[in-house]
């Protein structure tokens, strides 16, 4: 029980599949997230890094219970030690768990931005919101604009401030920074950092590894819909020797500042996932066992890795 109290959100063996049309009239299930693990403690920022198609954006929808109707979810999501049911998700959404969505489409197109960000809470946090806007370099007049009048970067900053104003204990930020200038992105992330230091948790979903390395406490690396490694951010700064999974090592080596050396091949598609370890076809160390069996997630040197050999 002690253990559970310390974890705010725990995701265990989560799978998400979609019902799709196949050839002709048949429908089939397409598994896009499989055996996903993640744990977030109060006061930390966990970055989820992975390419498009790794299932990282669906993770947010799965936690909030806003997947489209043709999706099936299996596995367990615990929030404060309690299993998340659809009803709980409805109750927690926007109150205990806040989302920074990817696009302005989530804003009410007919409501001025200022009123919208203030939300329904009373007393209205107008002063606080104005401070936030100033920090994010949003001009004074922004509060009187309608969502369609915002540029891409402004919209992201508005969305970020919406989440920062809530009393939520978990903030899920889905690609919050594209379109922002470097200074604005850094400011936004600094604000997430302050929230975390104040005891809240932030799940930062991003494909921008540099940003993740800069601000997160731990980084979860996603590959083809599963978690391959979760490690303290220092290990990612230290280099490939400190990392546990060959895919994380390959990511590190492919960064422009670290060699720009890619490995061959592609992330497999949902629907044609290989048997055994999903990374095995591209892995330089893969053995026969890797091609047959899915490796379990193991604790190694203060991190977690889904690999038979990671050490």
């Amino acid at each position: 029980m002690e253990q559970k109290q310390e974890t705010l959100l725990e995701i265990h063996d989560l799978s998400v599949s979609f019902r799709m049309y196949g050839e002709g009239l048949s429908q089939k299930d397409l598994q896009v997230i499989s055996n996903l693990h993640l744990r977030i403690r109060p006061g930390e920022i966990v970055a989820v890094a992975g390419s498009s198609g790794s299932g990282k954006s669906l993770l947010a929808s799965a936690i909030l219970g806003i997947l489209p109707s043709n999706a099936t979810v299996k596995g367990h999501v615990h929030f404060r030690g309690q299993e998340l049911t659809p009803q709980m998700q409805r109750e927690l959404r926007g109150k205990e768990i806040a989302l920074v969505p990817q696009s302005v489409a989530y804003l009410d197109p007919l409501m001025r931005v200022g009123r919208q960000v203030d939300g329904a809470s009373k007393p209205r946090p107008t002063q606080q919101r104005r401070r936030l806007f100033r920090r994010l370099e949003l001009p004074e007049r922004t509060e009187n604009l309608y969502p369609f009048q915002l540029s891409g970067g402004m919209a992201r900053r508005v969305l970020v401030s919406t989440a920062l104003l809530t009393e939520a204990s978990l903030i899920i930020a889905d690609e919050p920074t594209p379109g922002m200038s470097l200074e604005q992105a850094l400011e936004a992330l600094k604000m997430f950092r302050e929230m975390a230091d104040g005891g809240k948790s932030v799940l930062l979903i991003t494909h921008d590894i540099d940003l993740a390395f800069e601000f997160a406490d731990r980084v979860a690396v996603f590959y083809a819909g599963t978690t391959v490694e979760i490690a303290p951010v220092e290990d990612f700064r230290a280099g490939p020797e400190a990392l546990r999974h060959p895919y994380s090592q390959a990511l590190w080596r492919a960064l422009p500042q670290n060699g720009f050396v890619p490995i061959d091949g592609f992330q497999p598609y949902a629907g044609s996932l290989p048997q055994g370890c999903l990374f095995a076809p591209r892995c330089p160390h893969a053995t026969e066992q890797c091609h047959r069996q899915t490796p379990p997630i193991r604790e190694v040197r203060g991190g977690e890795v889904r690999c038979f050999y990671g050490a």
């Binding site: 390419s51 494909h207 492919a254 422009p256 050396v261 890619p262 490995i263």
Partner: peptide, 14 residues
């Protein structure tokens, strides 16, 4: 390559 993962980025740029 802004929207791509770093491995694909390195593959394409090379």
């Amino acid at each position: 390559s802004t929207m791509l993962d770093v491995i694909t980025q390195a593959q394409i740029w090379n």
